[in-house]
């Protein structure tokens, strides 16, 4: 009789283990589309090794990512800007982990670049975005109006751009500016036009759009890896993950993977700069 009870118990244990194995764990992530590019790569690699782990990766911008992780709607928040003072207060026990570096790079349509606009300084950028400079010939380019592409206020990229250009992350641009969402929309616009300017994350600044060098203190600083890493490029930023301390083990494990040496190669692949 006791024998059969043991056997039953063992059978139950086994079935529990099997059930546990069969149930897939889900990791929810949201926030900056900038970091999303890297996190998707990392998630692909990670889930190929852990088939039981599934990912739901949303974007929505750094601010949204912060809000969701604070509310506990997601397990990991992505943030591509520094925390505001308000946010720092709310952060509490949530970890604030750097996974990479990025820069916000001003980009123009190829035709604009080819017409001679290759360099800009921050005040000039400010005037373009404020609508004070409206034609490229004002800057020595072709006689074409400037089509200004701005980003939504809650975007980390805009936060960095506005801080650098206007000194205020919430500073408004000209009303004529076309307000877009993620980096790809900016790319679509700038590349399909022959008179547009916009700004994107360093990783997107290639192909059909042309990145402008910045003139700071009479020095021309190109958006290169070394300039970003050494801090000379002014619109650089850190990429953060927000991870609450009490996340389940499998989430913590993924976070460890994201910070690993291997993941740094993925950061590079995503077009960003590894931390070390």
């Amino acid at each position: 009789m006791p024998k059969s009870i043991y056997l039953t118990l063992i059978a139950i244990c086994f079935s529990c283990m099997l059930l546990q194995q069969a149930q897939a764990e889900v990791i929810t992530i949201a926030g900056s589309s900038t970091i999303q590019k890297f996190i998707k790569l990392a998630a692909n690699v990670y889930s190929s090794r852990h088939p039981d782990i599934q990912f739901i990766i949303g974007s929505g911008g750094s601010t949204a990512g912060f809000a969701k992780v604070i509310d506990g709607r997601i397990q990991i928040g992505m943030m591509s800007r520094e925390l505001t003072d308000d946010e720092k207060k709310k952060l509490g026990s949530i970890q604030h982990l750097v996974v990479g570096l990025d820069a916000v790079v001003p980009v123009v349509s190829r035709e604009v670049f080819q017409a001679g606009i290759k360099l800009v300084d921050l005040p000039t950028l400010a005037r373009i975005y404020q609508g004070k400079i409206v034609s490229w010939n004002q800057l020595g380019g072709a006689n074409r109006k400037i089509l200004v592409a701005d980003k939504e206020v809650h975007r980390g990229t805009r936060f960095v751009f506005a801080m650098a250009v206007f000194g205020d992350p919430k500073a408004r641009a000209t009303k004529r500016a076309i307000i877009l969402g993620d980096n790809q929309e900016v790319l679509n616009l700038v590349s399909s036009s022959d008179q547009a300017i916009g700004y994107v994350s360093f990783a997107y600044a290639s192909g059909d759009v042309k990145a402008l060098s910045l003139k700071v203190d009479d020095k021309v600083i190109s958006p290169t890896l070394s300039n970003i890493r050494n801090g000379s490029f002014p619109m650089a930023r850190k990429l953060y993950l927000l991870v609450p301390k009490n996340v389940p083990g499998y989430v913590a494990d993924f976070v460890r993977f994201v910070q690993s040496e291997e993941a740094m190669a993925l950061v590079k692949k995503a077009g960003y700069i590894p931390v070390n």
């Binding site: 035709e111 307000i179 036009s193």
Partner: peptide
């Protein structure tokens, strides 16, 4: 641009009855 790029499109073309492009994102 305000309508089409946020929806993920890459541009627009307005074509006249003469089958010529009248206006697009590129001059």
């Amino acid at each position: 641009a305000k309508h089409i790029f946020p929806q993920g499109y890459k541009g627009f073309y307005l074509i006249g009855k003469n089958h010529k492009i009248l206006i697009s994102m590129k001059e």
